[in-house]
Design a binder for these strands. Sequence first.
DNA 1: CCAAAAGTGTTCTTATTACACCCATGC
DNA 2: GCATGGGTGTAATAAGAACACTTTTGG
Lengths: 236, 236
Amino acid sequence: MNPSSANVAERRLAPPSLAISTVIFALRPSEKSGRPTLWLPLVRRIREPYKDMWALPGGPLAHDESLQDAASRNLRETTGLTPHYLEQLYAFGGLHRSPTQRVVSIVYWALVQPTEAALADESENVRWFRADRVDELAFDHKAIVEYALWRLRNKMAYGSIAYHLLGEYFTLAQVREVYEAVLDRQLDPANFRRHIKATPEIEETGEYLQGGKHRPPRLYRFTGTPGLGPDNRSTP
Amino acid sequence: MNPSSANVAERRLAPPSLAISTVIFALRPSEKSGRPTLWLPLVRRIREPYKDMWALPGGPLAHDESLQDAASRNLRETTGLTPHYLEQLYAFGGLHRSPTQRVVSIVYWALVQPTEAALADESENVRWFRADRVDELAFDHKAIVEYALWRLRNKMAYGSIAYHLLGEYFTLAQVREVYEAVLDRQLDPANFRRHIKATPEIEETGEYLQGGKHRPPRLYRFTGTPGLGPDNRSTP
DNA sequence: CCAAAAGTGTTCTTATTACACCCATGC
DNA sequence: GCATGGGTGTAATAAGAACACTTTTGG
């Protein structure tokens, strides 16, 4: 049996390997307008296949960690960040995702706060990209990012998720900017503020944001629960 | 190294094994009222762990089949059915789901038509249960069934999914019965029919259902697409 | 004719949208 | 005082719930 047929046999017989990857979203100011836009960190592959291409942070699942812990860990390892929101996205298991072996990837998606995101590690092999402008990535990661973005938009339109992209205190205009950045359309400020104020998880504080050029806006706080999904006992 | 420490070492070092399971829903007439209710087939375990307990149909992932194909296969193997709707539910990967080894299960959920479900294989080791009355199952399968049921209810409230539990032709009252069975509450017939007729995927036929005791209701047809999820290029 | 489900109309309530307007601050 | 974003009011429209009413069948 020569080496190449050994590889073929190995591939046929070995069980599919299991990996965890994470799509990490954070707000950063756009270079041009300065308005907040969605970004995500990618890592450069240093090995074949897809050597030198950008890919989602990820890696194998350790024997003694849960799926979510693994996602949390590779988020911390690549960016130094801890997520304020972390949820399973999907398990991708197509036969030809990787040219060298069969890989099943369980992908999570995360939201991190902008104050943290600004401090995130960046290096030769870790760089942030605009979420709506990713070019070709390794494996099927471009499709995964697009799906994660679709899911984020969907959740934002229904659930109370935007707050996980903001700090503890925020103005209603900041919440609106998050919606506008993610959904990519303008929203009526008057109606939007009423809409948000109607959600019970939003609490008015006595504080105001000082230092702006105009009337100081009131600061609010989010009192809802981050957790979702069957593992966290709630609603995906 | 004695056998028991060998097992421990094996468990620590072996990668988590990967399995596919499926929650299969179908409508069947209730024994009492005769009204349609939700049922699902379970299989009896013939080996440890959880020997003799009921469990979701499932098994390992073959090296040359996609995740969805595997789900479709174990659906066919246990019940003889082909699903009219099949979608990924969630990947369960808790550390202690199985007492003997670490198992990550990628779970799908399916809807099958009642005409088929009536013919489904049933045997000593395959039996149908009412979906809202499952008792203790093997592993974490009870929680999985409850989560699948939650997801079905959620999708039914928003999307066009009820039709996959019905045959090709159906009356609006039958659609309403599906909603009432799944959501477990009465719906106003007048408002419900308007709501359904407003969906563009519902097509009126010239046919009427004959043989009833009263005025023959018109038959309708569903013209929408079943597919969802990133693998099928659409919307979960 | 009567019972019962099929199917239509009408009213009331509530959410969404568009947009006019007032308020408070820095400059 | 004036420009600007913060914040409130209001009228028009759309969507949903409640329920009275007409139609068509089998018996």
